[in-house]
Design a protein around this nucleic acid. Structure first.
Lengths: 275, 275
DNA sequence: CAGTGGTCTAGACCACGAA
DNA sequence: TCGTGGTCTAGACCACTGT
């Protein structure tokens, strides 16, 4: 039986074991490993061997004291683990062990217009706004041109995983007046329904890393600035871009899948090659 | 003419303008915005209006002094901007304005085996190793089973953008002995060549956020722990998984494109809706 | 209310790159 | 050698969540 890496309950005095122990075993290092990096490795192993999903960790001040580091340093390690989807931290609550990332399909169910029966999105609202310039460029509209803007959200396993803004220029849904229509979910559904009258000729997508806007953050139940995977999809019809979707997925909890994979397994932690 | 947000060269005394100015204009805020968040917005606007790509910013100590905040707070803002691909920081050199993210195709050129003529990857090495357990599960091999492991790297615009580990189990390339083959680029090419003898039946992919392992970080010219987009691809042949590729792309400089898009534009900064 | 994570400060020293 | 960003400390206060 091995000594636990984290004494969950006990109040123990500051602990120098880590620095001596693990650094000592691999002394050959020409480059001193940063403390937070090393700490992350130790914590990661402790998570695998001593904790189960949903379990709460000791609070940051305790953990820092146990490892003999400043809280800022401990937090640097926790931040990385959260980024990798291993931990979940909530202010006022604590730090818990996160479940494996959920795979969310982004390729298959969508060789059709958004809003087609059975897609995973739930329309929430629709207003008329001027999109960001980058989106206006994709649409081919002049900067500042107002377009229908549908807000949708996507749930998985009872948790919100993505927030989307779908920009639909007026020329794609000519039957709808842009200005005087009411806002709300009803109008969102109408816009989506009108879109289906066009023949979808294709779509292309891009994925990049971003940070959550304040608005999206609230919907995703995260703090502003949280890392998100931004999926930009362009829908083509009638030889031009008929609509643009900007979907932001929680990067900590989501694994985006393309194609028919669902069973793809989690890739976590660096240096996890077989030992 | 407007006052510049950053006096590039001059030594100015600590500056209280930000707190008074911008908070003052939108006083209705019920929730006080964190300083670093606000700072990030200010810097982001300064980047757009006063700096051009490649230009170096004042150093962190100067910037912090000018904005009247601690260096740690300033760094929090810079980190976010770097995450969003707006800045590039290099130790010993400085902070520079990053070029727009490059779009790297991940869907089109690859309805074929890796290594097919004209793919963007350059084989670097090949050894025989036991893959991480997560990969072994995908391959359907027992944990600890040794497989051919091809290292490849991908360049774009003269910069390294991705590092890949391609795991090829012995049953996929029966003509090659796993153990006694030499290592090196020559063997890598042989393994890739042998793969093409199988009929590719399909592939599926997943994208998630990760942090760079020390090994990959060096190849990507980043520090360990740098954010990366991990693309896991499974290749199907003969009714099973014939190979698995784990590719890590620099999240700060790359935008992964799927389909025939290349002209998709950058989505940067939160709160950038037209003003 | 007490306890949690989130923000912030004002220092210090280190590793790296270029001159 | 010098200036840069990277790491680290030991505090402090704030915002949020539960009881």
């Amino acid at each position: 039986m091995q000594q636990p890496l984290i004494n969950k309950g006990a109040k123990t005095p500051p602990d120098t074991a880590i620095a001596e122990d693990t650094v000592g075993t691999t002394q050959l290092e020409a480059v001193p490993e940063p403390k937070y990096w090393h700490l992350k490795t130790v914590l990661s192993e402790a998570l695998d061997s001593e904790f189960s999903v949903g379990e709460v960790l000791p609070n940051e001040r305790d953990l820092a004291a146990r490892f003999g580091v400043a809280r800022a340093t401990l937090r640097q390690a926790l931040e990385q683990l959260e980024l990798e989807g291993r931990l979940q931290r909530r202010r006022g609550v604590g730090t818990t062990v996160a479940p494996p990332r959920v795979g969310v399909a982004v390729g298959t169910e969508q060789h059709a217009w958004p809003g087609t029966a059975g897609d995973a999105w739930q329309p929430a609202d629709c207003t008329t706004t001027a999109p960001p310039n980058a989106v206006a460029d994709l649409l081919g509209t002049a900067h500042g041109t107002q377009v229908h803007t549908v807000r949708r959200s996507r749930m998985s396993h009872g948790q919100p995983v993505a927030a989307e803004l779908l920009y639909v220029p007026e020329f794609s849904v000519p039957a709808l007046p842009a200005v005087d229509a009411p806002s709300g979910a009803a109008r969102a559904r109408t816009v989506l329904h009108e879109l289906q009258r066009l023949e979808l000729e294709g779509q292309d997508r891009a994925v990049e890393l971003g940070s959550a806007r304040a608005e999206d953050a609230k919907e995703l139940d995260r703090l502003p600035g949280a890392p998100v995977l931004v999926v930009t999809t362009r829908f083509h019809a009638e030889g031009r871009t008929a609509a643009v979707s900007v979907a932001t997925y929680r990067a900590d909890t989501c694994r985006l899948t393309f194609g028919d994979s669902e069973g793809v397994v989690i890739h976590h932690g660096p240096e996890r090659h077989a030992s």
